[in-house]
């Protein structure tokens, strides 16, 4: 396995075409555990650590832009423009995970139980890459699949700044990933609700809840999503997950700020 640490984004993308199975290395907190478990075996690691242009946050009025290499710890401290996003970042893993793990790595991986995908979808984000941009609604394409092409590198993500938003997560007690996590965002032109952890195809927009909230329905009386659309594993069955969605929705709406 070889290791490269390019100094420019162009070099990083160029290098990705040179390996049989090249992988970008950001925080390494998904990739390295996967390599240790022999789930991944790249022949070339392209460490993004020196690409300072991928780090940091800026707002441009409508959107909060966060660089792909920005760590969860930094977002939890500095994303004041969207407090719900700060809170979400502070709930990822543990402090040692948060100082290494990055936004871009989390999105590229699209783990069905990861937290950021819910925020990206509910906050109608734009994912900018080395070769274009993706709307959140088109980006996530089922568990561990995204719209990214081979070697496509996420540069930054632009989250639409909501009027109010909140994230509520029922954490798996050992892994801290979401068994169900619900992100609610209110905009002038409507409400968006995204669910992570629970869906059989990964993160999804819960449109029935969006419509009900927009119509002023009491969140406590909004019914659960279809049990047939839920995922199931040794940690939680589909009925339980569907129920958790309603509980997390209530919590999120109660916490809107």
């Amino acid at each position: 396995m070889s290791y490269e640490r390019p100094g420019t984004l162009d070099d990083a993308v160029r290098l990705s075409g040179t390996g049989e199975d090249a992988a970008y290395l950001a925080g390494g907190h998904t990739l390295i555990p996967a390599m240790k478990a022999r789930l991944r075996d790249p022949d070339l690691l392209i460490d993004l650590a020196d690409l300072d242009e991928l780090k940091g946050l800026v707002t441009d009025g409508e959107r909060l832009w966060i660089g792909a290499l920005t760590t969860h710890a930094e977002v939890s401290q500095t994303a004041g423009a969207i407090p719900a996003l700060q809170q979400l970042a502070s709930l990822i893993g543990d402090p040692q995970v948060r100082v290494r793990g990055t936004l871009g790595g989390s999105l590229a991986n699209n783990d069905p139980a990861a937290d950021y995908p819910a925020a990206v979808l509910a906050l109608d984000a734009v994912i900018e890459t080395d070769r274009g941009s993706h709307a959140a609604d088109d980006f996530f394409q089922g568990m561990f699949f995204t719209a990214l092409e081979e070697g496509e590198l996420i540069r930054r993500v632009g989250f639409r700044i909501p009027k109010r938003a909140a994230y509520a997560k029922f954490r798996h007690p050992a892994s801290r990933y979401a068994l169900a996590g619900v992100f609610v965002a209110e905009f002038e032109d409507g409400v968006r609700v995204a669910v992570t952890g629970a869906g059989g195809d990964g993160v999804f927009r819960w449109t029935a809840a969006e419509e009900a909230l927009a119509a002023g329905t009491d969140p406590a009386s909004i019914g659960a999503p279809d049990v047939g659309d839920m995922s199931s594993d040794i940690h939680a069955g589909p009925e339980y997950r569907a129920h958790l969605c309603t509980v997390m929705l209530k919590q999120a709406v109660g916490g809107l700020s």
Partner: peptide, 10 residues
């Protein structure tokens, strides 16, 4: 940081 999830080169 977790030294089991960090490469020497990093």
């Amino acid at each position: 940081v977790k030294s089991c999830t960090l490469l020497l080169a990093q």
